[in-house]
Computed example of a mutant assay.
Amino acid sequence: MADFSSALSLSASGMSAQAQRLRHVSENIANADTPGYHRKTATFEEVVSAGQHTGQVALGQVNLDRTALTRIYDPGHPLADEGGYYDGSNVDLVVEIADAREAQRSYEANLRMFDQARQMSSALLDLLRR
């Protein structure tokens, strides 16, 4: 039963990490038109407990993408400089949608693994009761 428990915790940690990743992707999409906004990127880290590798993952440090911001020409904008330009964001909606789709599919794969482990442990308990 310990193997089933570890399988459940592994897939649950994956679902949690992907859900947090999806939250950052949605923040990027929501701020795509915010002047001066830098895209957030997240990394994954392996969870270590008492010096032992657990196999679980967690969302690591969230970093700001330091690629150049797009320069937008709009002389009427309140943030425009004397040349009529202001800094937009560095969010690319195509990249964000691809990241969101990848996070969603990874979440679904972890969910299927969680459900499979739950079904197998339930079937084992049914066999042991007989």
Rank of each mutant, 00 (worst) to 15 (best):
Y37R: 04
D33Y: 10
S121G: 11
V91D: 00
R66P: 08
H24W: 06
D65I: 06
N110E: 08
D3Y: 14
S89C: 03
A117F: 02
A19H: 06
S106L: 12
V62A: 07
Q20K: 07
G14P: 00
T34L: 05
Q104A: 10
A2K: 15
V94Y: 06
S49G: 14
R129C: 11
N63Y: 15
Q61V: 12
V94F: 11
D87V: 03
N63S: 13
L127W: 14
Q18C: 05
D65E: 09
N31H: 01
S13W: 01
L93Y: 09
D33S: 11
L93W: 09
S9R: 11
A42D: 08
A2I: 15
Y86T: 05
N90F: 02
T70I: 13
T70F: 12
L8T: 03
G51E: 08
N63L: 10
R66N: 13
T41N: 09
R130V: 13
G84I: 03
A12W: 03
L8D: 03
H24E: 06
I29E: 00
V48M: 13
L8F: 07
T54C: 06
M113I: 14
F44V: 07
E46I: 10
S89L: 01
L127M: 13
E45L: 12
E96R: 03
P78A: 06
L111T: 04
Q61F: 08
R66K: 14
G84E: 02
P35N: 07
S9W: 10
D74W: 05
A17I: 02
D33K: 11
I29C: 04
L124E: 12
A109S: 10
V62N: 05
R71G: 09
N31R: 02
T67F: 07
S16D: 12
V91P: 00
E102F: 14
N31Q: 03
N90T: 06
S89G: 03
D87G: 04
Q52D: 14
L111Q: 11
H77F: 05
G84F: 01
D99C: 07
M15W: 01
L59E: 01
S122E: 15
V47M: 08
V48I: 13
